[in-house]
């Protein structure tokens, strides 16, 4: 195995899940996701690239995955070629529980501008400053999208919560919700 191939293997091991998760949050079918996954890492392999640090390599992979997903979203060719129906919720859990599916489905129902920063931040633990760079947004804009995404996810999950809750629980959640919507900071 050449050094370059070893590097590719290393990078796939290190960032494969991150890239795969981003793709899953943006594309529907499993085969599409696998195609894009391959393209991201093959682009990495074939391109001449400069990285200031490890973070910039990760950012490159994230941004490339986003670009390719967006291109795929805009290109009906992908879908027609695969002949698959689109389903944003077809995450292949290895071992899932109902709560997992509910959470992920709620994430997938967010619009992309909320879904992506939320996934990057809360699932992949990417700092807001890095998300801002990768998405070409200000940090304030990322924070705002995260805030809105959280509100929407929470609302979504509450709506799907078991309706057998007690009145006290409902009251408590109402209070909590008000904390969220009235929270401010300078």
């Amino acid at each position: 195995m050449t050094d370059e191939e070893k590097d590719l293997e290393y990078v796939m091991d290190k960032y494969g899940r991150t890239v795969s998760g981003i793709i899953a949050s943006m594309l529907g079918s499993q085969s599409e996701r696998e195609d894009i996954f391959q393209e991201v890492f093959l682009l990495y392999y074939t391109k001449d690239l400069f990285f200031g640090d490890e973070g910039s390599r990760r950012s490159w992979l994230i941004r490339t995955a986003i670009n390719l997903c967006r291109a795929a979203n805009r290109s009906p060719w992908y879908r027609l070629r695969n002949g698959e129906e689109f389903d944003p919720n077809t995450v292949q859990y290895t071992e899932s529980e109902p709560t997992d599916e509910r959470l992920w489905q709620a994430v997938c129902r967010l619009k992309e501008k909320y879904r992506l920063p939320l996934y990057l931040h809360y699932f992949e633990e990417i700092p807001i400053s890095d998300i801002a760079k990768v998405m070409g947004l200000s940090e304030g804009a990322v924070k705002m999208r995260l805030s809105r995404a959280r509100e929407r996810i929470k609302s979504e999950l509450e709506n799907s919560r078991n309706i057998t809750e007690t009145e006290a629980e409902a009251h408590e959640r109402k209070r909590e919700r008000e904390y969220i919507i009235h929270s401010r900071r300078v």
Partner: peptide
Amino acid sequence: NISYILEGFEP
């Protein structure tokens, strides 16, 4: 929950 979801993304 997150761990389960992320596991599903492991290539």
